[in-house]
């Protein structure tokens, strides 16, 4: 019997916008919260913080390496810096500083990337961040967040601000379907089971959470009971929920708008191998995309409910009887 939970997926704000709003709320709560941006504040929505707290906002120009290390200096001196840019720039151009000035000494800096994944659309691959989960997770001590909707973004950015230690969060450009009610509780490192199921588990993050919920509905109509779990935290992984899903459903699909290499899927596969081995399939990217509308790209590069459902059928065919 398939799950009966019915999700009505209404479009909410983009997770980048929710990040901007969460920053303002944090800024009101704690005057040590400061923000650095690299000439993209209108796109990252740190402009909201800038408007509210001009003294605590630092425009770094188009110079991400310096921005990240200035953030580290602010953190060394007791501030709680959020440094933001497009994911592809803050992570790739700031990586060496995130490594040597942040991860290695373990300073209390939060890096937030917006415009993650291919769903940014027309700007094309130079602006599309599809490697940053791999890079962020490679940094010892970092918590890596990947919220799916505005509610989880607001809550997790707040949690990041209260956590002492480095955090990276990836957010998206597109308006994102609302998954959660306003009273949902979130804890970094604790994945959330959205729908129970017994035949297969779909583990998703970011935009793919909504697609996975839709895929579950398709599968339910075919008599397949799929569990759906939102991994809003990619590091540290919720090992218990993974082990339980592997043991109880015996088949796992992981879906993410990121390269399969080094992504959530391979990280989950490690936990599955260590706890309760089972068959797995991966929905993700295998290379660089191109310019087009977000809808066309998500279709062409296999990031839709249809693709998640197909992976679920495939993994079920491989599941030992």
């Amino acid at each position: 019997m398939a799950a009966t939970t019915k999700f009505e997926l209404k479009l909410g704000m983009a997770t980048r916008e929710a990040f901007g709003k969460a920053l303002v709320a944090l800024g009101k709560e704690n005057r040590d919260v400061v923000v650095c941006d690299a000439d993209l504040s209108k796109s990252t929505f740190t402009s909201l913080f800038h408007n509210e707290f001009p003294d605590r906002f630092f425009s770094c120009g188009i110079a991400e390496a310096n921005m990240v290390a200035i953030g580290a200096g602010l953190a060394y001196a007791g501030k709680i810096p959020f440094v933001a840019s497009f994911s592809s720039f803050v992570m790739n151009k700031g990586f060496e500083q995130l490594r040597c000035a942040v991860a290695y000494p373990g300073v209390n800096l939060k890096a937030v990337g917006t415009h993650s994944g291919i769903s940014i659309g027309e700007d094309g691959p130079s602006q599309m961040s599809i490697e940053e989960t791999a890079l962020a997770c490679s940094l010892p001590g970092f918590i890596v967040l990947s919220p799916a909707d505005e509610v989880s973004t607001m809550a997790l950015i707040r949690a990041a601000g209260h956590h002492v230690g480095p955090v990276f969060a990836r957010t998206g450009r597109m308006k994102a379907p609302i998954i959660y009610s306003a009273d949902q509780k979130f804890e970094m490192g604790k994945a959330i089971q959205l729908i129970d199921g017994s035949d297969v588990t779909i583990m998703a993050t970011g935009l793919l959470v909504a697609e996975s919920i839709r895929a579950q509905e398709t599968l339910a109509a075919e008599g397949i009971s799929a569990r759906v779990i939102d991994f809003h935290t990619i590091k540290p992984l919720d090992r218990d929920i993974i082990r339980k899903a592997a043991a109880e459903t015996g088949a796992i699909v992981v879906a993410e708008e990121h390269l399969v290499d080094g992504g959530l899927g391979v990280r989950i596969a490690q936990v599955v191998a260590e706890t309760h081995p089972c068959v797995m399939e991966f929905v993700g990217l295998t290379g660089y995309a191109e310019s087009a509308t977000p809808e066309q790209l998500l279709d062409k590069y296999g990031m839709l409910a249809r693709d998640v459902a197909a992976a679920a059928r495939k993994v079920l065919a491989r599941k030992p009887k």
């Binding site: 400061v34 200096g73 007791g78 060496e96 290695y104």
Partner: peptide
Amino acid sequence: LEASTGSLGEGVSLALGMALAARL
């Protein structure tokens, strides 16, 4: 120590972050 260093080029930025904090 005030900072871990060794990868060249980072010290001025780190000092600037600390100076901004002092200014605030």
